[in-house]
Design a protein around this nucleic acid. Structure first.
Length: 448
RNA sequence: GGCCCCAUCGUCUAGUGGACUAGGACGUCGGGCUUUCAUCCCGAAAAUCCUGGGUUCGAAUCCCAGUGGGGUCACCA
């Protein structure tokens, strides 16, 4: 009964549109706690006012909600400034930090900086930014629960990091330690890029006399061209991917499997499945490459799993109600197996809404005979419905000794302007008699 | 450059000293189904387990070095 509750947090900063790798961290942190019936905390790290983006906080909340991630507690660092200030001043008082009045270096210097010890560390100023007084000749280490390794550094290579900026806002190094402690976070899960600054945090924990939580560093998702995932190859922002027509379920499934794997190599996971089977030993140690083909495959899988009325709604919303719902509903069964992204709906089903130009070169040698025969047959059908359409047209093919494939291909092209389309007879039914005949006549007329 | 992490088919991975003639998935190629394209089904190719040394009766699995990839070195997170 004294077991400590697993509490994790997702701590993004509202500095731009959320990156897919960032979202992955949220999924992992969520599953880590929820698998144990623990708590998941959302903490906004808005301590850099200069970089903060308008609406950034709302976007983070919206995205988590879209993916079904709910948080048990919520914190905004800018509302907790006193906490950090007290902690920083305590460190100064105890001799583990000092005031610095140097001019701020607020951008990365050219080349590699090597000035690890700050010139103000022994000047005993009583105001200014507060920096950590890193000790000499100490070994600082921890066991990373993702890597499963003990990692250590000599304090000689740790720099006197700024803890509290002169604007009284904390830096990440201070805020992360103070908040994780204050909110009883048991497991810290974060990007690989934080590994090098972990010794700073470890020192702060020690000097503040806080218990160190479990800390784990996740892999980075890499760009197919090398380096960290970048925007060169299309969007990597979550909203961008959503706008490309990817389903949240597919994005979720794809991204959790980039950096984590189950023992049995299972592929399809809902959020609930993932929480159920989650096991931290499944974390990978090496960086995965963003594989769009695999994402596309997942998306196709989920489109097929979605029931027709739900898919109709999603397409309706995706196109911001540009197309009428009743028509989408009829078309959905025809395109469901044929699209990999919602955005494919346009290219595959566009002809239903807008007459497409017919390239005569696409038509076969006997298109004239084919289309005349089709026209004649279609004219006799009073009520356009699937079974009748199929029977009559097939009968026409037989009676005229046409080649079935060639006949339907010409009809297909005349109606849609394309060689790759949904099933043609079913499409004609949806299109209706009037429109169908009109299009066939038009092609016949323009090719004469 | 210093420091740190990592290394199994093109890609994501299973594998935790003997069951590995290294398994699965995506992609690719071939076939089936079929009035197109897809879906679906079947099959194939694809991995010197990065290299070199050890340890061991035995190594993809443990150790060391090299090489390669990644990260990081701000009053940004």
């Amino acid at each position: 009964m004294t077991e400590k509750k697993v509490r994790t947090r997702f701590a993004p900063s509202p500095t731009g549109s959320m990156h897919i790798g960032n979202l992955r961290t949220a999924f992992y942190a969520y599953a880590l706690s929820k698998h144990e019936g623990g708590d998941f905390i959302l903490r906004i790290e808005d301590t850099d006012k200069k970089r903060e983006v308008e609406g950034g906080v709302q976007e983070i909340k919206n995205i988590l909600t879209i993916f079904g991630i709910n948080w048990d507690e919520y914190y905004l660092q800018s509302e907790r400034l006193d906490l950090y200030k007290v902690a920083a001043e305590k460190l100064v008082k105890d001799g583990h930090a000092f005031y610095c009045q140097c001019e701020a270096k607020n951008a990365k210097q050219e080349g590699f900086s090597s000035q690890l010890r700050d010139s103000c560390r022994d000047k005993n100023f009583t105001s200014g930014a507060i920096k950590l007084k890193v000790p000499e000749n100490e070994i600082i280490k921890f066991r990373d629960f993702v890597l499963g390794e003990e990692i250590e550094w000599k304090t000689e290579i740790v720099f006197d990091a700024t803890l509290l900026k002169s604007d009284k806002f904390p830096t990440y190094h201070l805020a992360v330690v103070v908040d994780d402690h204050a909110t009883s976070v048991s497991h810290v899960l974060r990007g690989h890029d934080w590994l090098p600054s972990t010794p700073i945090h470890l020192l702060v924990y020690k000097y503040l006399d806080f218990k160190i939580p479990q800390i784990g560093h996740l892999t980075d998702i890499l760009d197919p061209d090398g380096g960290k995932l970048s925007k060169r190859k299309g969007s990597t922002s979550v909203t961008g991917l959503l706008e490309e027509g990817y389903l949240p379920e597919a994005l979720f499934n794809f991204v959790i499997l980039a950096g984590w794997a189950p023992k049995d190599n299972r592929e399809l996971f809902s959020l609930e499945d993932f929480v159920n089977v989650f096991d931290a030993s499944g974390f990978q140690k090496s960086n995965p490459i963003f594989n769009r083909d695999k994402l596309d495959w997942f998306n196709g899988q989920y489109i097929r799993k979605t029931n027709d009325s739900e898919l109709t709604t999603r397409i309706l919303k995706f196109y911001k109600e540009k197309y009428p719902e009743d028509l989408i509903e009829k078309i959905v069964p025809l395109i469901k197996d044929r699209i990999t992204r919602l955005s494919d709906f346009d290219t595959l089903a566009g002809f239903f809404f807008k007459e497409s130009e017919v390239d005569k070169n696409l038509l076969g040698d006997n298109f004239d005979k084919h289309l005349h025969a089709a026209l004649e047959t279609l004219l006799t059908i009073k009520d356009f419905n699937n079974s009748q359409m199929n029977d009559k047209l097939l009968e026409t093919v037989k009676n005229n000794n046409f080649k079935t494939g060639d006949f339907f291909m010409d009809l297909r092209i005349a109606i849609t302007g394309k060689k790759m389309t949904p099933p043609i007879n079913e499409s004609l039914v949806i299109l209706g008699k009037e429109e169908t005949l009109k299009r066939i006549k038009q092609v016949l007329k323009s090719t004469n």
